Computed example of a mutant assay.
Amino acid sequence: MARDALLDTETKIIVLFMFLGLTAWYLVQQVTANELLELAALIGVGVVVPTLVNEW
């Protein structure tokens, strides 16, 4: 039963957006030195977006 939870759709969405959030953070670092934008990319894409997607 615990194994099924690991393959849950919500878990897949969270892992995908964690990867995208880290990628966005890295790309923002390459473009600008603004730490606020870096944090917004990391938290926005990695936490807020998957939460909204899973709640929808």
Rank of each mutant, 00 (worst) to 15 (best):
A24D: 09
I13T: 14
E35S: 13
K12N: 04
A5I: 06
T23Y: 12
Q29C: 03
V48P: 01
V53A: 13
V49K: 04
L16Y: 13
N34C: 04
A41K: 10
V53D: 07
E38R: 07
L39C: 00
L16V: 15
E35P: 12
L16R: 14
W25F: 15
D8W: 06
V28N: 09
L6S: 02
D4E: 09
Q30N: 02
R3K: 08
G21R: 07
T51W: 04
V48L: 12
I14G: 00
A24R: 07
L52P: 00
Y26D: 12
Q29R: 06
L22P: 00
T9S: 04
V15N: 04
T23A: 14
L52I: 10
G21N: 09
G21H: 08
V47G: 01
E10R: 15
I43Y: 12
E55R: 11
A5Q: 04
E55N: 08
L42V: 10
T9P: 02
A33L: 05
V45Y: 04
A41E: 07
L27F: 13
D4M: 03
A24E: 08
T32M: 06
P50A: 00
A5Y: 02
L22F: 11
T9Y: 02
T51N: 05
I14C: 07
A24N: 06
N54D: 05
E10F: 05
A40F: 15
E55G: 03
V31K: 03
I13P: 08
F19V: 15
L27E: 14
Y26E: 13
A33T: 06
A5E: 08
V48S: 05
T11C: 05
V15Y: 12
N54A: 08
A24T: 13
Q30K: 03
V53P: 04
V53N: 05
A5K: 06
D4K: 02
L39S: 10
V31G: 00
V48K: 02
T51M: 06
Q30R: 03
V53I: 15
V49Y: 11
V48Q: 04
E38M: 10
I43R: 07
L36A: 14
F17Y: 15
F19M: 15
G44H: 06
M1L: 03
N54G: 09
V48Y: 07
Y26Q: 13
L27Y: 14
A33G: 08
A33W: 02
N54W: 02
T32E: 10
L52T: 06
V15H: 02
F17P: 10
T9F: 06
T32G: 01
V49W: 02
L7W: 04
E55F: 05
V15P: 01
L39G: 03
V45C: 10
L27M: 13
V31A: 01
L7G: 09
E10N: 15
L39T: 10
Y26P: 00
M18P: 00
K12Q: 09
N54L: 08
L37P: 01
M18H: 12
D4W: 01
A40S: 14
L22I: 07
L20C: 15
V31R: 02
N54K: 11
E55S: 08
L42A: 11
V49N: 00
A41H: 10
V45R: 09
A41R: 08
V49R: 01
W56N: 08
P50V: 00
E38S: 04
